[in-house]
């Protein structure tokens, strides 16, 4: 009978239109929650509202935001990229070895990003040509790349002696840490790509119904290559930033951050069923997660509790998000 009368309660995520009012609304509530947290922390601790702490928070948020944005492209196509944490650590190893070999910074950065591109293409190749589920394909590279990184470094850390490279992450411009500028550098083109260009529309269409997209003349395979390549390249970029920040390249850096990126994206309103998501979403999601970590540290909360709080928060936020969608 009519779809208007009986609502299907398990209708997967549904947004009126990518980037439209719903996402704005969602971003606003998330923003509200974030401001509330900040206000609470500012009142309850002396240390939160210090330049030192805020720049620190922004630096960490940057790195998570970059991988979460990349992840979002893939999730919108109804895929998933589990390898971003490993790619981040692996590219740290790559760039530190390159710098050790006296490559110039720019060349080292370029080569590392190209490594990211290659990894992303390989993911898309596995998903499209070999027909592997994205979960499996990226789980495999998660494991394998970790091993390759450990082999290349014999399991040890490589210290960076290039001061110009490490000082970048400590520097700032107009009172804002360099690293935070980097997230702007990533987020604005990403926004244009996802919300304003036709390729963004195609990603949503593929996530909703790849067959309909294909029959409409969309080059589905090429778009999937783009999505996975963006995710891996963003992860490599985040790896470069992390290495600059901590001054060492280590294959185990970024372990577990794939889950941070997925959580940030989902908290930001992305649907794991595909076809729903935005760029502001993962950005706010990652800042929120970073704030929780940061605040818990300042309040001397047992780090084990932080994990529990984060987990609980994911359930609550996504539940409310789905509730809101269902009402529409």
């Amino acid at each position: 009978m009519s779809e208007t009368v009986i609502k299907d309660p398990i209708e997967p995520g549904a947004a009126s239109k990518p980037g439209a009012r719903l996402n704005l609304l969602l971003s606003l509530t998330l923003l509200g929650l974030l401001l509330l947290l900040w206000a609470a922390l500012a009142v309850s601790t002396d240390t939160f509202l210090t330049v030192n702490n805020l720049t620190n928070l922004m630096r960490q948020a940057t790195i998570w935001a970059v991988i979460a944005i990349g992840q979002t492209f893939v999730i919108i196509t109804a895929g998933i990229d589990l390898s971003v944490g490993t790619v981040l650590g692996f590219s740290g190893v790559v760039i530190s070895l390159l710098l050790q070999a006296k490559f110039s910074i720019w060349l080292a950065v370029l080569v590392t990003l190209l490594v990211g591109v290659a990894i992303g293409m390989f993911h898309a190749f596995g998903v499209i040509k070999l027909g592997l589920p994205p979960f499996i394909m990226t789980l495999a590279t998660l494991t394998a790349l970790r091993g390759i990184g450990l082999l290349m470094t014999n399991g040890s850390s490589i210290s960076i002696t290039n001061d110009a490279f490490t000082s970048f992450s400590r520097g700032g411009l107009l009172g804002i840490p360099n690293l935070f500028w980097m997230v702007i550098l990533v987020a604005i083109p990403s926004f244009v790509f996802l919300h304003l260009s036709r390729w963004g529309r195609y990603l949503f269409a593929i996530g909703s119904n790849p067959e309909a997209a294909r029959l409409s003349g969309v080059n589905v395979q090429a778009m999937l290559y783009v999505a996975y390549t963006l995710s891996a390249t963003f992860a490599a970029f985040a790896g470069i930033l992390t290495t600059s920040r901590i001054g060492i390249g280590n294959a185990t850096t970024g372990q577990g951050w794939e889950l941070q990126s997925i959580a940030s994206s989902v908290i930001g309103g992305t649907s794991l069923f595909g076809a729903v998501g935005s760029i502001p979403g993962p950005l706010l999601g990652s800042i929120l997660l970073t704030t929780i970590n940061n605040g818990a540290n300042l309040l001397n909360v047992n780090p084990f509790w932080q994990l529990i709080i984060t987990g609980g928060l994911i359930i609550v936020i996504v539940y409310f998000d789905q509730l809101r969608r269902r009402k529409r």
Partner: peptide, 17 residues
């Protein structure tokens, strides 16, 4: 299955091609 992106908007579906 083949013609429409059901959980996207009317406009996007009309313009997809």
């Amino acid at each position: 299955d083949q013609g429409l992106c059901l959980n996207l908007g009317v406009g996007l579906n009309l313009n997809l091609a």
